[in-house]
Design a binder for these strands. Structure first.
Length: 274
DNA sequence: ATCACGACCTGGAGGC
DNA sequence: TGCCTCCAGGTCGTGA
């Protein structure tokens, strides 16, 4: 579900929590899979703290408090962070409930691929998930020269290159297909074969695809919603993802689907040249 | 060192 | 209706 535009959409709808004081903290007993279990003790110590800001780094969200600690969240595939009223029925797979008087922020994740942790500022970047992240295209920009240098050093497919969080933080499977279509590049092409011109196109395409999706509040393919429960509108603007057999929006060729590294890739066999 | 693959989970959709 | 198989926005550990 959540790639950079979706996580940023959630971040924006969570900003209304700034200034609120944490009055309760309930940690589910079933752990999340990735990182170890959410640190129950460290989370409970934040009762009484006040929210001072919401940040996003790649696909990670940071809930800053007026203490040195921040809550770190990653939504994995099916994670949701939503604001509820205290009495609302609690969904299955609710892993964390942060109370703010009459309101609650709930983290729900059926597949349990998400992550929850507590990090200490200003060393939050030492967290294993954040330490490896490359530039975030929307906050750091995406420098063509840097991307070109990395591409030349490696022989991964372009699909794998743009999905690598150490290369572009925040890219995911939907927008990887979208960006490569936009840049007219074949997903199976090896990164070391990129020219500086095509790298520039790719960098521009990445920025464009992500900011456009953000303008539409993200893509709801099956179940993404923001913190207020609203779906994103970007699905109807997708160029290739999920459009197998439908005409390419540039050249009318039938869009193809293939599987790369176990993940669906969509591309146009005519205008995305190998 | 680099790369591709399977594992980790649950639930929804579609076939029979 | 019910059972089975397949598929899913992410990341990490393994083995080649």
């Amino acid at each position: 579900m959540p790639e950079l535009p979706e996580v940023e959409t959630v971040r924006r709808t969570l900003e209304k929590l700034v200034g609120e004081r944490i009055t309760s903290m309930a940690v589910g007993r079933k752990g999340l899979h990735m990182a170890r279990k959410p640190p129950r003790g460290a989370l409970r110590k934040l009762i009484g703290a006040r929210i001072t800001g919401l940040r996003r780094i790649g696909k990670y969200l940071l809930v800053d408090t007026d203490r040195p600690q921040s809550i770190l969240a990653h939504l994995g595939m099916t994670g949701r962070l939503r604001i509820h009223r205290k009495g609302d029925p609690r969904a299955n797979h609710t892993h964390l409930v942060i109370g703010f008087g009459e309101r609650e922020l709930r983290f729900v994740d059926p597949r349990r691929f998400g992550q929850l942790d507590v990090v200490t500022r200003p060393n939050e970047r030492e967290h294993v998930g954040l330490a490896v992240l490359g530039p975030d295209p929307l906050t750091d920009g995406l420098d063509t020269r840097t991307l070109f240098t990395i591409a030349k050093q490696r022989k991964v497919t372009l699909k794998a290159l743009v999905l690598d969080q150490g290369v572009i933080a925040g890219m995911g499977n939907i927008y990887a297909s979208e960006a490569l279509w936009r840049a007219k590049l074949r997903p199976t092409t090896r990164s070391n074969r990129l020219t500086s011109q095509s790298t520039a196109k790719l960098a521009a395409a990445v920025r464009e695809v992500l900011s456009r999706a953000l303008d539409h509040n993200g893509t709801t393919f099956s179940d993404f919603v923001d913190a207020d429960g609203r779906e994103g509108d970007n699905e109807e603007y997708l160029w290739v993802y999920g459009r197998e057999g439908m005409p390419c929006r540039r050249c009318r060729t039938s869009i193809r689907k293939s599987v790369q590294q176990g993940r669906a890739t969509y591309y146009c066999p005519t205008c995305q040249t190998p």
